[in-house]
């Protein structure tokens, strides 16, 4: 599906000193720097895979997506998507892909979404019967039947995002690129979008490439993760492997009904992190000792509540973003 080797992209930027003098200097003499955005990137994606591209802001995720979709031209390297070179933008190629950008809209702002859809039907030459069937299917699945004829500018972000998604699926692309599809959405809307994508992908077997800052998106959808830091690929593998990348420890938090001593010798070996009131501690416990230690704490301490972390990948991501040298 996607085959990239030694892919590179660098951008030209220029710098400006603040204020009037800076502006004046900039007017006459502008310094340009070349900033590498993606460096020697390699990846192979098989049909039907769901891949999460992770990385902090500016890591190069979006740049990669834009090279995959043929929007920008790589500076160097080999790239084939669906057997084609994306930036040559053949019609065949463009008919088989779709891109959803959470921060941008392809729907006409001043018109109902249905008008945009009808236009897309013509762009992609979708036969009338197919178009109607897909429109019904998708709008039922997304619960947006009543929104099709509402002006897009009157919709909430969550509603608009569903329609954006729909607009990208009307031509049943073979690969769907999703660039932060849930950004800015409330929790329920996020969950709905995720559930829809998971279900749609299962039914159609579409290849999904997703970037997101919400680890819940990644957890719910992706089987495989690709981590990018500073334009370079730093991890590529299964989610479970990623969770254990920094060791096979579990993080468990316990709440107590009264303040305890922070010097407790039983807890000390497990890197305890206490809260201000000393009523809550977070421990890092090796997987093998989890049962034993938990039983002991529950029995011996005044525990009122306890929980394990919900999203281990989130912790791993945070740590890696803080200290990339851990990898």
């Amino acid at each position: 599906m996607i085959q990239a080797s030694l892919l590179n992209k660098s951008f030209r930027i220029h710098k400006k000193q603040p204020g009037f003098i800076g502006a004046l200097g900039n007017f006459f003499n502008r310094e340009y720097h070349s900033k590498p955005a993606v460096v020697d990137f390699e990846v192979t994606v098989r049909p039907g895979e769901v891949i999460g591209l992770l990385g902090p802001n500016g890591a190069g995720k979006t740049t990669l997506m834009k090279m995959f979709t043929g929007i920008i031209v790589p500076s160097a390297g080999e790239l084939k998507v669906l057997g084609q070179t994306p930036h040559l933008r053949s019609r065949e190629f463009r008919k088989q892909i779709a891109l959803v950008m959470g921060q941008k809209s392809q729907l006409w702002w001043d018109l109902p979404a249905l008008d945009s859809f009808l236009l897309l039907q013509k762009y992609y030459e979708i036969p009338k019967a197919d178009f109607k069937r897909r429109l019904d299917e998708l709008s039922t699945l997304l619960g947006v039947i009543d929104l099709l004829e509402v002006h897009v500018r009157k919709l909430s972000l969550g509603e608009r995002m569903k329609l954006e998604l729909m607009s990208c699926l009307l031509h049943e692309p073979k690969i769907l690129f999703l660039d932060e599809p849930t950004i800015g959405l409330d929790l329920v809307a996020q969950r709905n979008i995720r559930a829809f994508l998971a279900r749609y992908q299962k039914e159609k077997g579409t290849t999904l490439i997703l970037t997101s800052h919400y680890m819940a998106d990644v957890e719910a959808l992706c089987q495989r993760l690709v981590l990018i830091l500073g334009g370079k690929k730093r991890f590529d593998g299964k989610i479970e492997d990623f969770e254990q990348i920094l060791g096979n420890n579990k993080i468990v938090a316990y709440d107590f009904d009264r303040p305890l001593s922070t010097e407790d010798p039983v807890l000390a070996p497990f890197a305890p992190v206490w809260n201000e009131d000393r009523t809550r501690v977070e421990l890092t416990i090796p997987a093998l000792q989890l049962r034993e230690l938990s039983q002991k704490i529950l029995k011996d301490y005044p525990v009122v509540d306890f929980h394990t972390e919900k999203l281990p990948i989130e912790r791993v991501m945070t740590q890696l973003m803080d200290r990339p040298e851990l990898l």
């Binding site: 979709t69 043929g70 929007i71 463009r94 008919k95 891109l99 992609y124």
Partner: peptide, 11 residues
């Protein structure tokens, strides 16, 4: 704004 992206990926 990069909205041109959408035009570029249309067939």
């Amino acid at each position: 704004t990069g909205e041109l992206d959408f035009s570029l990926i249309k067939p």
